[in-house]
């Protein structure tokens, strides 16, 4: 199981690398503007809005959880909101805040956030 997790982590890491450092950097900027208010500046789910929320925002540094989601899952959740992936309505659709390329950049950053520090 650990080997399996490690392999997936490496694959996700490679996927983020292939997305390009520029995409990841832009994804980070977009993440800060649109996502960090709930998910936190460090992506741990403890954003400035989290305190009074009924559902804790997802911890994007949770490697085990994040590797269970494909890039397509993450893209769908961001673009169409939590409801589209059977998650909380508190996660809104970001389809008018970011275009598809920008959402892909955020997904690339999420892969760095979740999986680049795995030992």
């Amino acid at each position: 199981m650990k080997i399996h997790t490690a392999l997936i982590t490496i694959m996700l890491g490679l996927s983020a690398v292939s997305a390009g450092a520029k995409d990841v950097e832009y994804g980070k900027q977009l993440y800060e503007a649109n996502c960090s208010q709930c998910h936190g500046m460090e992506g741990d789910g403890y954003g400035v809005n989290a305190e009074d929320m009924d559902v804790m925002p997802k911890d994007h540094t949770d490697t085990e959880e994040m590797i269970s989601r494909t890039d397509a899952d993450l893209f769908k959740a961001i673009k169409f909101g939590g409801k589209a992936v059977n998650k909380s309505v508190l996660m809104p659709n970001w389809d008018k805040n970011m275009n598809d390329d920008e959402i892909h950049a955020v997904v690339a950053y999420l892969r760095v956030l979740c999986c680049s520090n795995e030992e």
């Binding site: 800060e32 503007a33 960090s36 208010q37 936190g40 500046m41 460090e42 403890y46 954003g47 400035v48 989290a50 305190e51």
Partner: peptide
């Protein structure tokens, strides 16, 4: 908000 956010052990 991000210009005024501080990360703490209890959350942002």
């Amino acid at each position: 908000f991000a210009n005024h956010t501080v990360v703490t052990d209890e959350g942002d």
